[in-house]
Amino acid sequence: MAVVLYKQMTRIKEEGHTVIFITHDLDELIRWTDRITVMRDGVVVDTVDSGSVTEDDIKRLMVGRELSGHYYRTDYEKPIFKETVLKLSNVTVPGQIDNISFKLHRGEILGIGGLSECGMHEVGKAIFGASFNRSGDVILENGVKINSIEVAIKNGIAYVSKDRDNESLIVNDTISDNICITSLDDLKEHNIIFNSRLSKFANKYAEVLSVKMENVNQLVSDLSGGNKQKVALARWIAKNSEIFILDSPTRGIDVKVKADIYDLMTEMKKQGKSILLISEEILELIGMCDRILIMKDGKINGEFMRDINLTEEDLIMKMI
């Protein structure tokens, strides 16, 4: 099929028109274009002639930035994990994930990276029981199989989605309801729920996360992106979840809150919680994770252990 597209592109070019071709596939990029402009973080890095570059040159341009993450973790000693808390075996979601298996350990920050369409975001949903049409097993250490969101939450799994406004939060609801909604069973007394108790509970955890707000009865939609994310995290910390699936937790968030979230992750790791960090930011993965899985076309294409010498290039090589 692609050949048809290339033919059309060539025809349009020969007729004297212009084609702008946007792609991740470096092979076709070099073969079918005259000039290549590489962008990174919304900024043009360089424009080069296609005839004079190799794939490696392009990759270098795509990466070529110094590690600047002073707010990431600073420890690099080799972690030893014994206790598995969650196991995926042959998990498949048609069109998204293709037969994935891996283990998550207690106290581990496991990263999943890849290009945005590689299926990594669906992995989070699949574990949380939110995927339609999932096959394969997601099993906890105690043998419980996670097949629905209700079961996942009941068994200490927390999920913060990449889609903050629709999935992570109920934005048109109050901060209080958003924080308390997963903990209602712990907050009720003989099936009765008192509003004052909810407010107190919500206030406590909003404070733990230092959410900037007027009061807990404010709507979440009034908050900034960073504060929304804090509310989303507060809900699961309040629930005392054991396994945190964080999908792009620092996306669209200012540096200050970003640093707070990284500190929080480090703190949770110390407490023995397990974190699955799904991220499109390579530096974040290298800076925060004990182990990184790189996905490509719905499959796991590479695994890296925490290492001070790990470079962005290493990871990108496995993504493309």
């Binding site: 939110a130 969101i149 996942a152 939450i153 629709n166 939060l169 109920i170 934005v171 609801d173």
Partner: peptide, 9 residues
């Protein structure tokens, strides 16, 4: 928010 509620269990 129906989707948000579903993701909150």
């Amino acid at each position: 928010g129906e989707i948000g509620s579903r993701f909150a269990g």
